[in-house]
């Protein structure tokens, strides 16, 4: 990677700190969390609120399930050449009661993952453009 500036792959979905947070919304009526952001109608069937506040979500959770991608996905995904398989985790955030999917950090394969394992959010480069390095969130196993 070069010394180009870092930029989020999708604007407004996570903070850019060393210990990043995903940015979601929370219903002002019932407190339900949403990611990606929900700003229109609360999905809680018992709530008819349309007011939401933007919030930073928990940085850590537990693996709900996991797998890997052994084949290169099509665009819009930008894959490294040559393609290296990567692990994918679905992670439960306890406080928010939601599941967030994402890649697992480079160098960690399925054999090293288990359902229920604690993971934390980090940023890693997704791909490089002419102007910057696009960063995205990934899940990193933490020592229990």
């Amino acid at each position: 990677m070069s010394d180009k500036p870092l930029a989020p792959a999708i604007e407004g979905w996570h903070t850019m700190e060393v210990k990043p947070h995903l940015i979601g919304t929370q219903c002002k009526g019932c407190g339900t969390y949403f990611f990606p952001k929900n700003q229109a109608y609360c999905r809680n069937p018992a709530c008819d609120s349309t007011d939401f506040r933007e919030v930073e979500l928990s940085r850590s959770g537990h693996i709900w399930s996991y797998t890997n991608a052994c084949y290169k996905p099509p665009e819009p995904f930008v894959a490294a050449e040559p393609f290296e398989p990567y692990a994918i985790a679905a992670v439960q955030l306890e406080k928010e009661q939601m599941v967030v999917l994402g890649q697992v950090i480079e160098g960690v394969s399925c054999e090293q993952l288990k359902v229920g394992m604690p993971v934390e959010l980090v940023l890693e480069p997704l791909h490089e453009t002419d102007d910057d390095i696009k960063m995205t969130w990934k899940w990193k196993p933490v020592a229990p």
């Binding site: 709900w64 399930s65 994918i88 359902v115």
Partner: peptide, 24 residues
């Protein structure tokens, strides 16, 4: 926006189901 750009395809979604069933 949320699932597709992170490189999961249909087999991966079903693999999540399989791994969860194996673990549970």
């Amino acid at each position: 926006q949320f699932e597709q750009p992170y490189g999961a395809t249909v087999p991966a979604y079903y693999a999540l189901i399989a791994q969860a069933h194996m673990a549970e």
